[in-house]
Design a protein around this nucleic acid. Structure first.
Lengths: 204, 204
DNA sequence: GTCTATACACTGATAGAC
DNA sequence: GTCTATCAGTGTATAGAC
């Protein structure tokens, strides 16, 4: 994204990649400096509070990155249901490749630190909330009633989190593709509470 | 479950508890011996291959435990949809309490070790598959068509995995309760592909 | 089978030269 | 701002007495 400081960014980039692959506890500071090519002194100059501070920034960065990608997939679309399906299918592609480093699993860090690093846990919780908000807003914008939109947003978030875990375990995105289909079903079902067919957005 | 050896079981029990809270990388062998009260020598006598071997057995144990609990919740029921809802609600209760030690998140270990410990990753993958099989079998037993039953089973598994992650992050089971409701919707929707209403099982 | 002492690599972090 | 040397602590694992 933005590049104000080179050394700092290299550390952050390397750390994000390593956190993705090995989690918080599995990634050492020594590994970060080795991977980024910067000496240890520089790391503690830029991040005085050490590993935890780096993780906090990495989460922030990834949260924003995914937020942007999600908006790109959702906001432009005419058909919401199709847009969500496509979005999940896009994520699936990441999990087909061996290295899905671009998509840091926030949930991974969250589970690891739930009982041990309150600040990280909290940061992850916020990421989930923000993602859910985009989902809910998109759905409401397309005519879903507020309560329904919120429940669906929570569900979509849960399904993405769960399916990425399974896909990571299985080393392919197949489960994510199944989920893409099921989300379609859920969105269609829920639609038939108020109005019937609204496949075009009503603004613009 | 079975108790053939006391020392061994104490190690295994302590390790399972710690893996739940802190994951694989976050849990040290020293911590396991401290928590279990057994000396290090005993640990390496009973588990010559060390931490990885303990984790493998812990996963096996938890997999079986959850399998039993799931069967208990699902197999007895008349109404499948209600049974699944109740099952998820039961899980939600664990996540309301501060210590949900009985429900080791297999997905946590899976994500941690996906790239680093093939044997653990594989063991977790098997757990997911077996759980999905129970779901699918239950659904097929209640008249769902095979392909639909399988897709739904995958989805329920994904939803449980995802919702436990979010619930762990939020430190309460609310998200799991939302999901319990959405699963109901999915199961109802999918039902209306072949036969219409079949709320009683056709055997017994 | 149980337990202690120990090996030795690696952890996160700091001090201080440059 | 950059880099090296080094710290105290912890990691997993082993050897060998009992």
């Amino acid at each position: 994204m933005k590049t104000k400081n080179n050394t700092r960014d290299m550390i952050l980039e390397a750390a994000t990649r390593l956190f993705q692959r090995q989690g918080y506890n599995g990634t050492g500071v020594n590994q970060i400096i080795e991977e980024s090519g910067t000496p240890k002194g520089s790391l503690y100059y830029h991040f005085p509070k050490g590993k935890e501070e780096i993780a906090l920034e990495a989460i922030q960065l990834v949260k924003e990155h995914i937020l942007e990608q999600t908006k790109l997939d959702l906001l432009s679309a005419d058909n919401v249901i199709q847009a969500f399906e496509q979005h999940i299918t896009n994520v699936a592609h990441f999990y087909d490749k061996e290295d899905c480093k671009e998509w840091l699993k926030i949930g991974h860090l969250a589970t690891e630190t739930a009982y041990t690093h309150e600040s990280i846990r909290h940061s992850c919780e916020k990421a989930f909330t923000e993602w859910q908000k985009i989902y809910a807003d998109t759905l409401m914008h397309h005519g879903y009633e507020e309560k329904k939109a919120q429940d669906l947003a929570i569900t979509i978030n849960v399904m993405l989190e769960g399916a990425t875990t399974i896909s990571l375990t299985q080393k392919n995105g197949n489960t994510l593709r199944v989920i893409a289909d099921q989300v379609k079903v859920l969105l269609q079902e829920k639609k038939s509470g108020g109005k019937k067919n609204e496949h075009r957005k009503s603004d613009a």
